[in-house]
Design a binder for these strands. Structure first.
Length: 573
RNA sequence: GGCAGCGUAGCUCAGUGGUAGAGCAGGGGAAUCAUAAUCCCUUGGUCGGGGGUUCAAAUCCCUCCGCUGCUACCA
């Protein structure tokens, strides 16, 4: 048994997440956590809302609320949406928690003590009208290169050139539109990332074959381009305050940059979990000197630099034996009809509306079977409907339906005990041994598309078997032969429930219950651990079963038309 | 501009040196237990363009084109 620590990239607090964020971090982490739990490992699965930073302050202002209240509300909304998707983490914390404040300050003190922080003065844009410093991208003006009038201070969207806010012509605040802005000196703490290049290089290279190519390439790129020191404080109000004992109080009133404290919240949320469950110092056994723990991180590609460079530097620089990640699973983007999902323009499908139109497991299966693993991929309702209808309704749902109903019609709704498994059954068992082993391997490798293609092939093998065994034909002449096929069919349904649980926990339970109640307290439906000869011959003769009514309803053309109209599909951005 | 990823059948994607693959869609057939659901067979691609290395290239090299992202103060 292993101890498995799993974290999902923290969803930002500024609104309900869309399907792309869901598949790339929270859902993929949940599916893996369930898989490991199903295999009997000790798993701790941690997530939290990432609450600090300028966008939060501005969103709260726009909502007419103070930041704390805004975050309180948004946290609960996101938590509720995630629970509806059956994201089964052990704790869903908040980066604004006291635990994270304490840990963030601890890491900063360690870095300061070890000489890896440096005070530097930088030029910052200050808006008099807004009474605040503005990050570069919140300054807009005319691009000096192409004349585009809405260029942002960090980059011109029109000509894609990288800019400095000082370069802009007629620069103004993106918040208020006021041109009453000026450049002020501001003092900040810089993390000396450049000193960690050899250590990072060795660490990253040691994981070259364990991380997806995407992750390694991004990490490598940052080192190749020459790692710069990075400012880890900001001139805003909402964040973890820099303690006075760092740099003799020169940074009074400033807070840590959101990307400094956000990954530390993985540890913070673990402490929140321990505190909330009376587990005292147990949280530390997962993170500090935790040589027996294997740590997995799940994230979209935008988060990769922070997890392969920033956070590791924080940990290495602390001089303390905090756990570094073992495996990173990174994802590309899920697009919406070829364009971007956009929170600000509300383009695409978001978690709250997705769950309104269909149960979580429809989405969970589709998203994992089509996860953007090797390249960006595109969500369309047409594709979604075809996958749901074919894979879930026709191949899986109908299989459970046809065999349970036949059993009820011809065998009194009880597992028939007559006959012995013959050549047909032995061939199926041999095939299933292979396929289940392959499915398990893909899961261990965190290759979701391949894993789910194998899962589907397993369902298809069930249908193929049933066609060959044809109990509806044998029932007329050889009742025992028909009984064998029905018994095997019911065992298959039972097996399918176990195999599907990490991906579709609610439907797996429902499928399982058509055959028999889930054993134990049923928090987990375990992974099949025995050879298929045993797994597929475990139902007791005479045991009653129930009809699998429509498990997965098909998506109709009318629904498809309604949803594309409602969510604005069809025309790519 | 620089860097990274991607470009394979109508669609979604596997495939990193050895005769081009899967699922869906399309065509034909079988079966009639089932949500008209299943099963079998099958049509379909000069692997983005061009050049090179090699006995052999989707795969390695060069070059061009296209899409996406990053470019360090959005997260």
């Amino acid at each position: 048994m292993e101890r498995i620590l799993i974290t999902s990239a923290l969803p930002y607090i500024n609104g309900i997440k869309h399907l792309g964020t869901l598949v790339g971090s929270m859902l993929s982490a949940d599916v893996f956590a369930r898989f490991k739990k199903a295999r009997g490992h000790e798993v701790l699965f941690i997530c939290a809302t990432d609450e600090h930073g300028t966008p939060t302050e501005l969103a709260a202002m726009e909502a007419g609320k103070d930041v704390r209240t805004f975050c309180d509300e948004q946290h609960l909304l996101q938590k509720a949406a995630c629970e509806k998707f059956n994201l089964g983490w052990d704790h869903f914390g908040r980066s604004s928690s006291p635990q994270n404040r304490e840990l963030t300050q601890h890491f900063a003190r360690q870095l300061w003590k070890n000489g890896f922080l440096e005070v530097r003065t930088t030029k910052q844009v200050y808006s008099n009208a807004d009474g605040r410093f503005l990050p570069d991208r919140y300054v807009i003006g005319t691009c000096p290169h192409c004349g585009y009038e809405k260029a942002r201070g960090d980059q011109c969207e029109n000509c894609t050139r990288v800019l400095d806010p000082i370069d802009l012509i007629k620069s103004r605040s993106a918040v208020s539109g006021s041109d009453d802005i000026e450049i002020r000196d501001s003092t900040h703490l810089f993390l000396k990332q450049s000193e960690f290049v050899p250590k990072l290089r060795a660490w990253i290279d040691s994981h070259k074959h364990e991380w997806p190519q995407l992750v390694y390439s991004i990490a490598n790129k940052w080192l190749e381009e020459g790692l710069q020191d990075r400012g880890i404080t900001r001139d805003v109000d909402w964040g973890v305050p820099v303690p006075d004992d760092i740099a003799d109080g020169q940074l009074k009133g400033k807070v840590f940059y959101v990307w400094f404290d956000a990954p530390i919240e993985y540890i913070g949320a673990t402490k929140e979990w321990a505190d909330a469950n009376g587990k005292g110092n147990v949280w530390k056994s997962w993170w500090y000197d935790a040589k027996d723990v294997r740590y997995y991180e799940f994230m979209g590609k935008d988060n990769v630099p922070f997890h392969t460079v920033g956070f590791p530097v924080t940990i290495m620089g602390s001089g303390e034996p905090w756990k570094l990640v073992d495996r990173i699973k990174g994802f590309n983007w899920l697009n919406y009809y070829g364009g971007k999902f956009s929170t600000s323009e509300h383009r695409g499908v978001f978690m709250d509306s997705a769950i309104e139109i269909l149960p979580a497991d429809y989405w969970r299966y589709y998203l994992m079977a089509n996860a953007p693993e090797s390249s960006d991929s595109s969500f369309t309702f047409e594709h979604f409907a075809s996958v749901v209808n074919k894979d879930l309704a026709d191949v899986l749902g109908n299989f459970a339906s046809r065999i349970t109903k036949f059993c009820i019609a011809r065998f009194d709704g009880k597992v028939p005990g007559e006959g012995e498994y013959g050549d047909e059954e032995k061939a199926l068992i041999a095939e299933m041994d292979k396929r289940v082993a392959q499915y398990t391997e893909y899961f261990e490798a965190i290759e979701y598309r391949k894993a789910l293609a194998e899962l589907r092939a397993i369902w298809v093998a069930g249908n193929e078997y049933l066609t060959r065994a044809a109990p509806w034909t044998h029932i007329k002449t050889d009742r025992a032969k028909a009984a064998v096929a029905v018994r095997m069919g019911l065992n298959l349904v039972h097996l399918f429930a176990h195999l599907a649980w990490p991906v579709m926990p609610a439907m797996a339970r429902k499928i399982h219950e058509t055959i028999q109640p889930v054993a134990g307290d049923a928090a987990v439906i375990p992974w099949p651990s025995d050879p298929m000869a045993k797994e597929l011959d475990q139902l007791e003769a005479g045991q009653p079963i129930h009809a699998a009514e429509v498990l997965f309803a098909k998506i109709t053309d009318e629904q498809l038309a309604e949803w594309t109209a409602r969510f604005g599909g069809a025309e790519p951005a």
